[in-house]
Amino acid sequence: MKTVAITAAVIFVLDQLTKWWIVHMMGLDTKGIIEVWPPFLEFRMAWNYGINFGLFSGQADMTRWVLIAVALGIVLFVLVWLRRDPPGLWGKISGGVLIGGALGNVVDRLLYGAVADFLNMSCCGIDNPYAFNVADIAIFVGAAGLVLFSDDGGKGPRTSRKKRA
């Protein structure tokens, strides 16, 4: 579980530092858009009161607390799953990445009432209207990693499990 905790802490700090630096230090919250490498990468301020793509953002205050509870429930579920059926190293890292991202967005909802999204990427004549953040990337990558690496890491049969006759 040490690997999970360290990975989660690194992702959480990375997420919060990027949000603090870009939103507050670079002034994205007042500028709205900062062109980094147009049109491929822009910092575009978006306060997300719902879930992905702003879904369920109608009842902002109620939604905020429900989404905080759901995120904490997912974190608890992943922790229990990793403890009961420990995967190999990549599975633990994936779990930590997901947990760190989820907690990063929980802190945003607690501090601001919404998640601070700022990364916007477009390509090939398609203008992407949506923004995301490091935590969103971590949640996606962590969930995918848990699917791919949720086995025992090739360690073979577990000695702690008893076979029933």
Rank of each mutant, 00 (worst) to 15 (best):
G96W: 01
R164S: 13
V115F: 09
R164Q: 11
M26R: 13
V106L: 02
A138E: 01
I93E: 01
N128E: 08
L110M: 13
I126T: 10
G91A: 09
K92T: 04
S122M: 07
E35G: 08
W81A: 11
L67T: 05
V80L: 15
P86S: 07
A69L: 14
I74P: 03
F149T: 12
D29W: 04
Y130A: 11
I34F: 04
T7C: 08
D117G: 05
M121T: 15
S57A: 13
G58A: 12
F132G: 00
V147E: 10
N105Q: 10
A8H: 01
G73E: 09
F77V: 11
V107A: 12
D127K: 07
A8G: 04
V115R: 00
D29C: 04
Q16S: 14
L103P: 00
F118E: 01
N48I: 02
M1H: 14
W65K: 09
A60L: 13
T63A: 14
M45F: 15
I51S: 07
W20L: 12
G145H: 03
F140H: 04
F118L: 06
K163C: 05
A60N: 09
F56I: 03
G104E: 00
R164N: 12
V147K: 06
F40W: 15
R164Y: 04
N48D: 08
N52K: 03
Y49T: 15
L41T: 06
F12H: 02
L148E: 03
Y130G: 01
Y49S: 12
V107P: 01
V4I: 15
G125R: 06
I51H: 04
R161W: 14
G58K: 11
V66H: 07
S160G: 09
I139W: 02
V134Y: 02
I93D: 00
P129S: 12
L79V: 09
P86A: 05
N48S: 09
Y49C: 06
G142A: 05
D15V: 11
L82K: 04
V75Q: 03
E42M: 08
F132C: 05
V70F: 14
V115D: 01
V78W: 01
K2C: 03
F149C: 10
V134G: 00
F56R: 03
L79P: 04
G104Q: 02
G104D: 03
G154C: 13
K19W: 05
D151S: 14
F53H: 03
A69D: 10
I99Y: 00
G27D: 13
